[in-house]
Design a protein around this nucleic acid. Structure first.
Lengths: 147, 147
DNA sequence: ACATATTTGTTTCATTTGTAACCATTGAAA
DNA sequence: TTTCAATGGTTACAAATGAAACAAATATGT
């Protein structure tokens, strides 16, 4: 028994997208206003802050970004002197990327901001709801991402 | 006790975004390949299919799109003769938009495809997980979306 | 060793997007 | 009425994006 109308606001892909978009936009406004960062730049900063030294490909894999986005974000951060490139001794195609002191400082400043943002979001939920969100997210990720 | 590292893959905005992006892309490939529709066009089609006749502003509100996206999507669908504009008698700024027969046919064909896509996604989850997803999504929407 | 394929990353080009300016119409205020 | 603000929608322009072509280096197969 196939229906003849789709309730858009009940359609999972739409719901997820709308939600993610609203939340991302809201958070993006913060790092854009404070540091003039774009989303790819923020993600690059976050990836490097978390992992220390990475190649561009690794950044892309770890932050779900197309390689051209990574390339541009890296160039922009380099221009601001928030990251540096070092040649890799073993493989000269690769560049080992890492944050400068300045980059680490910005990253360090953004950590509590990000944490507070997320906490503020979760604080609007009850304990059971929060549990459902985390469980549901994990389940979907397992089912959808690379599954 | 504020931490000094952010685990990006645990950060809710990032997780939601990655998930929504992956799912949306996958579904978008379907209507793009079959009908050459862009996402704004698909959403416009879905909104009109669901509600019958709407103004551009209403479409935007109902499908979470910027008005320029709606404007362009409407123009594209009109060009394909999948929707028509009718002047509003009371307010000449407004145009009452609705699908043509051809548009309705396409919409009708996409319904089961969308339903199957969503079902395929949920079928990968167990009953408890599915429940968690729905509950978590609803909770987040209520907390985040101006609700 | 040599040719070929693959990987890493950048760049070019066309498309998509959002901001802001804009036009036309309607509503509110004086 | 006459002005001014608000609304519905389009368009112009600049920025962001992705696909594909590219250069450089490395890996693989013979």
């Amino acid at each position: 028994m196939t229906n003849d109308v789709l309730i858009l606001e009940d359609f999972m892909p739409y719901r997820l997208n709308r939600l993610a978009d609203a939340i991302s936009r809201e958070f993006a406004r913060i790092y854009r206003d404070r540091y003039g960062l774009t989303r790819p730049e923020w993600r690059t900063l976050a990836a490097l802050g978390q992992h220390g030294t990475m190649t561009a490909t690794e950044i892309g894999a770890h932050s779900a970004m197309h390689k051209t986005k990574v390339s541009r974000a890296v160039a922009a951060l380099e221009k601001r002197r928030w990251l540096v490139r070092k040649a890799d001794a073993n493989d000269r195609r690769v560049e080992r990327l890492s944050l400068t002191k300045a980059g680490q400082r910005v990253y360090g400043e953004l950590i509590p901001v990000a944490a507070a943002f997320e906490a503020g979001m979760l604080d609007k939920l009850g304990a059971r709801q929060r549990e459902a969100v985390l469980k549901g997210l994990a389940a979907l990720e397992k089912a959808v991402l690379r599954a």
